[in-house]
């Protein structure tokens, strides 16, 4: 399933957040979106998933979600959003309970996603017992359980320390390699953006406009933590963003 965004504008009260966004999310690809803080990245993601209504413009789903998809647009949140009173397994089961699935199917879906995210041994743990990286794995397992058409990831690694971030990045890459999924990956971290994105979209400071779109041909599985090819993209992106980020920083101070 593709998603097409046409002439999208959005504002809160009088301040404009997003301006004239046109883009297409391609099936089976990861689209990274980067931009300075407060540029409307997260707003864009909430609009794509329907958690907010755009002021003007269209967001269209082209084609139908894959067979067995329970929730087409599925989020992974920065702060994990796990229910603390449910165990790992129950947190995953939460998103299946509203669908009339037999217990065997539910069981097999839960086992499958916990297996894919290496959480089998932690089924009965409560979130408070888990590290940040583990919590985000649970959130990923929960998202995979509904077999989403598009994964909407809002800075999923920002709350983690850099080593855990690298581990989870590898997990994302493996997951995508085993079964390519469509995803929008919001981040302010350039290296994450170039590691995961087939396409990278750079937003300007508020009101967010697309200032550049770049494509990276190198297969995701071949990209490494220290990678000369990616370095060039990263440098290029930083050159574009540098002034925007500086201006955005100064803007916040003036508020």
């Amino acid at each position: 399933m593709n998603i097409k965004i046409k002439n999208l504008n959005h504002s809160y009260d009088k301040s404009k957040v997003l301006s004239d966004i046109n883009l297409e999310i391609m099936d089976g690809q990861i689209l990274s979106i980067i931009g300075p803080s407060g540029c409307g990245k997260s707003t864009l993601l909430r609009l794509i998933g329907g958690l907010e209504k755009p002021c003007s413009g269209e967001i269209t789903q082209i084609g139908s979600p894959p067979a067995g998809c329970l929730n087409a647009m599925t989020y992974i949140f920065q702060d994990f959003a796990l229910l603390p009173w449910r165990t790992v397994e129950e947190n995953v089961s939460l998103v299946l309970e509203d669908h009339s699935l037999s217990n065997e199917i539910k069981r097999s879906v839960i086992d499958d996603v916990l297996d894919r995210t290496k959480l089998k041994d932690f089924s009965y743990a409560f979130p408070k017992q888990l590290s940040g990286g583990m919590k985000q794995r649970v959130a990923i397992a929960r998202a995979l359980a509904v077999n989403p058409a598009v994964l909407l990831m809002d800075e999923p690694l920002s709350a983690l320390d850099s080593q855990t971030r690298e581990l989870l990045l590898e997990d994302f890459i493996n997951l995508w390699h085993r079964k390519p999924f469509t995803a929008v990956y919001i981040t302010h971290n350039l290296s994450e953006a170039v590691r995961l994105g087939h396409k990278i979209l750079v937003l300007s400071r508020r009101p967010g406009k697309i200032i550049e779109t770049i494509s990276i041909e190198k297969p995701i599985a071949d990209r490494k933590l220290i990678d000369k090819d990616l370095d060039q993209y990263q440098k290029h992106l930083w050159n574009i963003m540098h002034d925007e980020a500086r201006a955005a920083d100064a803007e916040l101070l003036n508020v």
Binding site: G49, L51, L70, N71, M73, T74, Y75, F77, D79, A81, L83, W85, L94, V95, E97, D98, R142, V146
Partner: peptide, 28 residues
Amino acid sequence: DRTLIRMGQSFGLSWISIVYKIVLPGAM
């Protein structure tokens, strides 16, 4: 926590489910 409620909505949980599985346990 509002993010938990948004999470429930984003996964398409029904209103009743959100109240019984997220709001009430969270308020306990």
